[in-house]
Design a binder for these strands. Sequence first.
DNA 1: TCTTGACTTAAAGTCGACTTTAACTAGTAG
DNA 2: CTACTAGTTAAAGTCGACTTTAAGTCAAGA
Lengths: 133, 133
Amino acid sequence: MKIGELSDQVGIAPSTIRYYEKVRLIDPPERINGQRSFPASALQSLRFIQLAQAGGFTLAEIKTIFDGYPNTKLGDQWHTLAKTKKLEVRSKIQELKRVDALLDALLKCECASIDECVGQAWQVRPREQRRGF
Amino acid sequence: MKIGELSDQVGIAPSTIRYYEKVRLIDPPERINGQRSFPASALQSLRFIQLAQAGGFTLAEIKTIFDGYPNTKLGDQWHTLAKTKKLEVRSKIQELKRVDALLDALLKCECASIDECVGQAWQVRPREQRRGF
DNA sequence: TCTTGACTTAAAGTCGACTTTAACTAGTAG
DNA sequence: CTACTAGTTAAAGTCGACTTTAAGTCAAGA
């Protein structure tokens, strides 16, 4: 598969794919007349990168996973990272649910200001002392 | 409230708060002897910013919301943006759930490579043609 | 009075993740 | 043969979101 085709299939610009290769995130593919010829597995790799990025992984973290897997000795770098990230992902889901609720509130409520509306959406009454945060 | 106290309460660096003021994301607070003195509502604004950022809003988008709210004429900019973002947030939640599942798979499975494992986690058999994507 | 610590400014620097540019090559269609 | 398309490289540029730097101000405590 040439870079253009791969790009089309996965929805990642050729320049980005070359960039990923340059920073050693993906393996340098075979060259045919100087042009990259990717194996089918490159598609999976790129899709993994897409999803992991959506999950808040940096490219460096994705690299750690790629480099380490499947070595699973306890305390292994990628293993530790994956577990940490799983927690992050779960709390991010909770955060997003709060954002969703907040947007609902903003779209529906009649508050005069964002601050007031935020207060309501968070069950926090403004103009009143709360104890212990 | 001086900038240091606000910073401590909300967990955002003073330099960041000044930056938000510079890019007109928050209102310039009153100055007492040249020093910023924030009203309590600044706390709510900053918390809103934090959460919105976590929800994938750019600062420019947050500004649009702040600037437009609470004007709710149909087709209003902030209103449209909020509705669009709500959809984005919901699909992001789905994405994160997929990441969570993928991490589970990586942590538990015995695949020889990430690509293979990704294939399994996504109910996509590698080495087989799938029709129509 | 002197020092300390928290504040002020404008401007420059950083970082991650790409994208763009410029100059080039190789295969294909007319 | 020529033109076109899709590929190649290294290096520089961009963008969002901050952070750091340098030089200065101000009030409180020893």
